[in-house]
Amino acid sequence: MDSAMIWEWVGYLASVVVAISLMMSDIKKLRWLNLFGAMLFVAYGMAIQAYPVAAVNFFIVLIDLYYLIKIYRESSSSS
């Protein structure tokens, strides 16, 4: 299997992971899955030199990280 086909499958996997994340009712699960999908899209975008795809998804990674940190800090301070 050549490199281009592997990266194509990474793109498909990223799409599926993001789609599944958007079906989560638990916000923590949504953020974690979305983070993973966005990270896959960053790798995919860089690999195929689609820099706008990588940039937007890197921004999404930062957003997911921000909210995950916020969620975990709020849950630990209320305990």
Rank of each mutant, 00 (worst) to 15 (best):
Y67V: 03
V53H: 08
I69T: 04
W9Q: 15
S79E: 14
Y72I: 05
I63F: 12
A19G: 05
S77E: 12
A54Y: 07
F58E: 07
V42M: 00
V56M: 00
V56P: 00
A47H: 13
D26F: 00
K29I: 00
I6K: 11
K70W: 09
M46W: 10
I6M: 09
S77I: 02
V16S: 10
A55N: 15
I20A: 08
S21K: 06
Y51L: 13
N57S: 10
V42Y: 00
L40F: 03
Y72H: 10
S76I: 03
I20E: 07
V18I: 12
S78P: 05
Y51E: 11
S15T: 11
I71K: 12
Y66F: 10
I48D: 08
Y66D: 04
S15F: 06
A50V: 09
W32V: 07
V56R: 00
D64C: 12
L65T: 11
F36G: 09
L35C: 06
S76R: 03
V17F: 00
V61W: 02
I60Q: 04
S76N: 04
A14S: 13
S78N: 14
I20V: 15
A50E: 12
I71T: 12
V17R: 00
I60H: 08
Q49I: 13
A55I: 14
A43C: 15
Y51H: 13
A19W: 06
F41Y: 14
V56I: 04
I60M: 04
A4L: 09
D2W: 05
L22Q: 12
L22C: 09
A47Q: 14
I20C: 04
Y67W: 13
S21F: 02
S79T: 11
Y12I: 06
I69S: 01
A55E: 15
W32F: 06
L40K: 01
N57H: 13
S77G: 02
F59I: 15
M5Q: 14
K70I: 07
I60T: 11
S78W: 09
M23D: 05
L33N: 02
D26E: 08
K28N: 08
G37T: 02
I48N: 09
V18W: 00
N34S: 03
G37W: 00
W7E: 07
L68P: 01
